[in-house]
């Protein structure tokens, strides 16, 4: 009887320890998830800024100015187009 009692008490303590550890592991994993999510949100924000900048640098007005200055290109004229119909 005493052995059984002792045995059960040991199991109880062991289980408590396991639960305690698992709980803390979960909490740290939760924190990791949260920090990763924050990181993702931050990355998305940065991507949004980069996209906006990319669009800003690729705006037709700027491209046209650069093409005129560095490539010697001009808007197309009607007489530059021909068709073979």
């Amino acid at each position: 009887m005493r052995i059984v009692t002792f045995f059960l008490a040991t199991i109880l303590v062991a289980l408590a320890a396991v639960i305690y550890q698992v709980k803390y592991e979960t909490r740290s994993l939760d924190n990791r998830v949260a920090s990763l999510q924050r990181g993702i949100a931050e990355e998305r924000d940065v991507i949004a800024i980069l996209r906006a900048e990319w669009s800003h640098l690729n705006r037709p007005a700027r491209l046209e100015r650069l093409a005129r200055a560095h490539l010697g290109l001009r808007p197309i004229q009607g007489n530059q187009i021909s068709t073979d119909d």
Binding site: I19, T26, L29, A34, R38
Partner: peptide, 19 residues
């Protein structure tokens, strides 16, 4: 109590994740 310990707190309502 033990089951509370095992239950993961859902990521969705985690206040820390919301700037």
């Amino acid at each position: 109590l033990a089951s509370f310990g095992f239950m993961a707190t859902g990521g969705g309502d985690n206040l820390e994740a919301l700037p």
